[in-house]
Design a protein around this nucleic acid. Sequence first.
DNA 1: ACATCATTCAACCATATAGTTGACTGATTC
DNA 2: GAATCAGTCAACTATATGGTTGAATGATGT
Lengths: 117, 117
Amino acid sequence: MQLTLNSMVESSTYDLDYIFQALSDPTRRSILRKIAKRERAITEVAESYSMSLAAVSKHIQSLERARLVTRRKEGSYSYISLNADAMSSADKWIQYYRGFWEGNLKSLKNFIENEDK
Amino acid sequence: MQLTLNSMVESSTYDLDYIFQALSDPTRRSILRKIAKRERAITEVAESYSMSLAAVSKHIQSLERARLVTRRKEGSYSYISLNADAMSSADKWIQYYRGFWEGNLKSLKNFIENEDK
DNA sequence: ACATCATTCAACCATATAGTTGACTGATTC
DNA sequence: GAATCAGTCAACTATATGGTTGAATGATGT
């Protein structure tokens, strides 16, 4: 596995923009919790919120844009579930910086070596 | 060590809103990179960007609101540096959900063990 | 005291976001 | 085939965001 500064720290910048932006809303984090254990139909998800179905639909589109959820169509229902890869991007970014905080020299060393790539 | 759903999954909801929102902007992530190794004066940070100092100042305020950076005043300079705790909140949230994705109990376990660090 | 530097504030602009309602599209069921 | 259900789209509103410029504040240097 290749760890360039790009892949590791910024992944694709726009991806991280989308991912963190999606995670910044409590309704969307709540949706992720709701589908964490198993996939759910969109209507099923929407039941939990007082907002309109259209609003929930938009939140889900925002989560899809960030690739945090994936959609499976079956008949007239759409089922959404978590997507591993996007979350892992966000996590890598955070993990990387935690190194500095926590005095973890390994990530510091790694960082310095990759500084201006 | 108390693990309520609140403390564990949402920490304080508003905190996570601020944290992820702050991380969603590439300039702000770049500022975090810039101060990762050592604290820097605000003017020093601002030099790297083509935007106005006032704009950078706002970005830093946004990072402070999320408690991702802390400020130290010395004479007429303000120095900013990374703050461990906030980042760790975001990371915990993500780690927790990665467990579901990856079917990996280790991250959940890890989360639980590190809850009050 | 005065000028200068570091930084913020206020007012403003353009665009994005989070929500609404009502019309639309595709499957499903009667 | 008409009615219903799942979900999206379009138009709209209100507020937030990211940027600008110019004036204001507060410490430092002369």
